[in-house]
Design a protein around this nucleic acid. Structure first.
Length: 860
RNA sequence: GCGAGAGUGGCGGAAUUGGCAGACGCACCAGACUUAGGAUCUGGCGGGGUAACCCAUGAGGGUUCGAGUCCCUCCUUUCGCACCA
């Protein structure tokens, strides 16, 4: 048993050895200069938040990216494969509160720990470009960009209703509110507060963000759809109803065509937004959002109405906070006022309703019960009239209302009767524009990005409030505005920076007088919106990056991460790219050519999480089975885009497989070494049937895996294919031991096996590469050895098994030469015993031969 | 309610263009080697049947010589969106 030590696969011995060796070679995973002449490949995994511990989702993400990066290196590409830390954010402040550790210290030590974990996993990153977003040499560029955006009017301040998470004690962007709760604090209801906040004008790019999605064909359709929904473009018309302040006689007179006063003067208007202006003759009321400006003027004179409206506001607020705005029970109150439909002068009542949102469209709608389900429900409940103005093109008796289809023609709409809905929309819009009481209008659901945070651990917003000059930019040469290190983290509300006098008190760059610094910090999504550009030129002290270098590397060829960032991070990143392009820093319109959304890691039917108590620690896995096995299992257990069910026994299975590879390679390494320098073709040394069979399997395996790397990415089947190859070689153990397979063939088999394994199990591959005596000269590292090329001649079978069907049922299988023509295959099939006995006495009506695939007989 | 994905052995999954369903792995069973086995190797492993064969990819229908794959209806499930006017 003692001599078996050599034959035992011991990752605990191999992996640290290579880790140490790789650490002394910083060039190993470094990108080459722009001028290297090789095609570039930028592969990127989403940068982690430094929580202190990698989880299995990270391991899976990085295993995918690392396999791809290694493959591309072996294919001769200049690969950029960087890593960094999304290091600002609330957990650092919470930790400070809990353990009395400064956020910076806590964050940096977490980073060190996670970096160690990554190195232990053998991930091939270019650490020379490592980014840490909480350090001033990174976040100063956040400030620099903020100023550029401020100058272009893309960063601005406004007072608005904002989402406030009581747990975070800060505001949240719309994107960070999930089902009415904070994205970080499931179950914590977000409140609405009125605050002055900084915003980025992402809506200025709403249309381009939408249009660009069509061109992102390397993105999952799912992500594109989610972004489309989020942007929520809707095309319609804004129409002004006039507030009726006239007496009844006047109205009556006007309806008879008698002008009682000058047209268009100062009459108060209520602007509504509709996507169905063609139904406007069916409007039987106007509905205002409870917080519509006009409502306040109505309630000012009527305490009774005010009480009712307050009730509606309360209902809406509750529903909003509960996240089920859609389920709110419709309530409304009549205001006693009336509005005039500008198209027909009809007078309709004005109501206030809790299902109308103040922050979408104009906060007011025209209610057309006959052709809108919501209006129908409301009108039915309150007994408002329902007037049909659209009917199906082929009129059917008893149309069921509400009829919401746009396939119809107008009725009861005066001179517009008979027009199709689309024609009517065009004409009515034109009339409105001519009469100056409306216009075509595109509305987006997307809101500007609120970036102010009343927190400490983030990028300080580089603005100064001067008593004399008002808002003043921090000049570029005074950047970065550095976060003060000495700060007491408390749980009080308000910006923590406001409690640091040395930070707050400054002088105005313009007048030199006393001034106060802005004390809000930026949303951490700012950091991740452009970090991948910084990687290309990470140590540039004069600019965020060199445009020429960025132009070389961008767009990112492959971005890999969880689908949970489909909206937040990925829409901000696209916005930021467009802004940088318009600043002249880059030429690409989009940051990412291909996006890969990996599945989640599941255990016992639930997502791995601390609260579920089903977390598997990567360190444990590495300690027990080695990094190679842990990584390879995460690729083997499921295709990368699907959820992965973590099974401990499965890791052991992969580990067993790696042991098998180890024993096999070590056993025949002496033979392989003897075979160096000779070409193992069919001609050399007249390979036996076994040699040919194994070479064929090898070249089929190479072809399969190469193809998968080119797009399908089913690494689970790649690993399975390598397993098959190893099984086949092992099954020929007797022949190998007897020397029936020539040394050059043995060498090619083992050498290629190790190369195929290298992207998935780099430690084992490196060790065996050396064992095989291949670590010499140019190919000292398996990482720099060229990816094997499949020889189609060798991969080809010379005999095939062709299934034979009779009337669609499988009957038998016949062996024919691989190049047999249809005639020969048919003859072979008909000659088969089973076929003969089944066709005896019957007529073969039809024979279908698919060469290389099958024979199908139709028999009567 | 709308949209997208998924549904295949005991389990994870394979079948790339409509062409031998269940590759590969786990678990399990039997055997070999062994003082021992949670090591290793060999064989078996969808269901029914002694067998020839028959049945089987969520359910039902259809197209086709041939369907896990395409079409229709329905069920289950995951995710996203959801009074957005």
């Amino acid at each position: 048993m003692a001599e078996d030590k050599e034959l035992r696969y011991d990752p605990a011995a191999i992996e640290p050895k290579w880790q140490a060796r790789w650490a002394t070679d910083p060039k190993l995973y470094a990108a080459e200069p722009v001028s290297c002449g090789k095609p570039k490949y930028y592969v990127l995994e989403m940068l982690p938040y430094p929580s202190g511990q990698l989880h299995m989702g990270h391991v899976r993400n990085y295993a995918i990216g690392d396999a791809l990066a290694r493959h591309m290196w072996m294919r001769g590409y200049n690969v950029l494969h960087p890593m960094g830390w999304d290091a600002f954010g609330l957990p650092a402040e919470n930790a400070a509160l809990k353990n009395n550790t400064p956020p910076r210290e806590w964050t940096l030590s977490n980073i060190a720990a996670m970096k160690r974990q990554m190195e232990r996993l053998g991930l091939g990153y270019d650490w020379a470009t490592e980014l840490t977003t909480c350090l001033p040499d990174y976040y100063r560029w956040n400030q620099w960009f903020f100023l550029r955006m401020y100058e272009k009017g893309l960063a601005y301040r406004k007072k608005s209703k904002v989402n406030w998470c009581p747990e975070c004690a800060t505001v949240l962007a719309n994107e960070q509110v999930v089902d009415g709760c904070c994205w970080r604090h499931e179950g914590t209801l977000v409140e609405q507060r009125d605050l002055v906040q900084w915003f980025f004008r992402i809506t200025a790019y709403a249309q381009e963000l939408l249009d660009g999605l069509d061109k992102l064909d390397g993105w999952p359709e799912k992500v594109r759809t989610m972004q489309r929904n989020w942007i929520g473009r809707s095309e319609g018309t804004e129409v002004d109803f006039f507030l009726d302040e006239e007496g009844d006689e006047e109205t009556e007179a006007r309806e008879q065509g008698i002008e009682t006063r000058e047209q268009g003067t100062d009459r108060q208007r209520i602007r509504v937004f509709t996507t169905r202006v063609d139904t406007i003759f069916g409007a039987t009321s106007v509905q205002l959002a409870p917080e519509h400006a006009l409502v306040a003027s109505f309630t000012a004179t009527s305490p009774e109405l005010k009480a009712q409206v307050d009730e509606l506001i309360e209902q809406q607020k509750k529903a909003r906070e509960a996240g089920d705005l859609g389920a709110i029970e419709k309530h409304g109150v009549p205001t006693g006022r009336f509005a005039i439909n500008p198209y027909n002068g009809r007078r309709v009542p004005i109501w206030v309703a809790n299902y109308i949102l103040a922050d979408y469209g104009t906060g007011a709608i025209m209610s057309v019960p006959a052709h809108d389900e919501r209006d129908f429900e409301f009108a039915t409940k309150y007994g408002l009239p329902i007037a049909q103005v659209i009917q199906p093109e082929a009129p059917v008796l008893g149309v069921v209302l509400p009829f919401v289809s746009e396939d119809g023609v107008l009725v009861n709409s005066g001179e517009y009767d008979g027009l199709s809905c689309t024609e009517a929309q065009e004409q009515l819009q034109e009339i409105a524009e001519r009469g100056a009481f409306g216009a075509g209008k595109v509305t987006f659901r997307l809101k500007d990005w609120g970036v102010s945070r009343q927190r400490y651990w983030g990028t300080p917003i580089p603005m100064i409030h001067c008593e004399r000059d008002g808002l003043v930019q921090v000049p570029d040469n005074q950047l970065p505005v550095v976060l003060p290190a000495q700060i007491e983290i408390t749980q009080q509300g308000g910006s923590p920076l406001g409690r640091v006098p040395e930070f707050v008190h400054t002088t105005c760059p313009r007048c030199g007088g006393p001034a106060r610094r802005e004390t809000d910090t930026m949303d951490t999504f700012v950091d991740s919106s452009w970090y991948f550009y910084r990687y290309t030129d990470a140590r540039n002290a004069n600019a965020p990056f060199d445009p020429k270098i960025a132009q070389y590397w961008f767009p990112i060829d492959q971005y890999i991460g969880g689908v949970e960032h489909a909206i937040l991070h990925l829409i901000y990143s696209r916005f930021w790219t467009m802004v940088m392009r318009d600043l002249g820093l880059i030429v690409n319109d989009e940051p990412v050519r291909r996006l890969f959304a990996q599945g989640m890691v599941i255990k016992d039917g639930a997502k791995m999480s601390k609260s579920k108590g089903n977390v598997v620690s990567p360190d444990d896995m590495v300690a027990r089975h080695g990094a190679d096995a842990a990584r390879m299992y995460s690729l083997f257990a499921a295709p990368p885009d699907r959820d992965l069910d973590w099974q401990e026994d499965g890791v052991a299975g992969v580990s067993r497989f790696l042991s098998r590879v180890w024993r096999l390679t070590v056993k025949y390494a002496p033979v392989a070494r003897a075979g160096r320098g000779q070409q193992p073709t069919r001609q050399t040394g007249a390979p036996s049937g076994t040699s040919l069979r194994l070479l064929r399997k090898l070249h089929q395996t190479i072809a399969k895996i190469t193809l998968d790397f080119e797009g399908r990415w089913h690494f689970n089947t790649c690993v399975a294919a390598i397993m098959e190859l190893v099984n086949d070689i092992q099954a020929a153990d007797a022949q190998l031991a007897a020397g029936e397979v020539g040394a050059p063939v043995v060498r090619e088999l083992l050498r290629s096996l190790v190369l195929l394994l290298a992207p998935f199990a780099p430690y084992l591959a490196a060790e065996l590469w050396e064992e095989l005596g291949e670590a010499q000269g140019e190919y000292r590292s398996v990482l720099r050895a060229p990816w094997p090329v499949s020889d189609p001649e060798l991969a080809k079978e010379d005999e095939l098994e062709i299934p034979v069907q009779i009337n669609g049922k499988l009957v038998t299988v016949v062996r024919v030469a691989a190049d047999a023509g249809p005639k020969a295959i048919e003859a072979a099939a008909l000659a088969d015993g089973k076929v003969q006995s089944r066709t005896a006495g019957r007529t073969v009506v039809k024979v279908i031969v698919v060469p290389g695939k099958l024979v199908s007989l139709v028999v009567k």
